[in-house]
């Protein structure tokens, strides 16, 4: 689905993971990350992120 991702400016405040209805947000190696296979783009996480680092995933350019 690839709709939203979290940039490296994530402050790890831990606000987003709990609100995601599809449990697509987890903590990776250094920051929170969104599973591109399961994110539905509902943007609930966007509304709780205090630093606005959850952004739409850029479209893949055809190779």
């Amino acid at each position: 689905m690839a709709t939203h991702l979290i940039t490296s400016a994530c402050t790890r405040c831990d606000a987003c993971a709990a609100v995601c209805p599809t449990a697509s947000i987890s903590f990776g190696a250094t920051q929170y990350v969104i599973d591109q296979d399961t994110c539905t783009g509902c943007e609930i996480c966007v509304t709780v992120c205090p630093v606005d680092v959850i952004v739409p995933t850029p479209r893949q350019q055809p190779e």
Binding site: L5, S26, G28, I34, Q36, D37
Partner: peptide, 12 residues
């Protein structure tokens, strides 16, 4: 790299 969950978690 197309899925940040996988790109990061493999490093754990």
């Amino acid at each position: 790299r197309r899925n940040q969950t996988y790109a990061q978690l493999i490093r754990r």
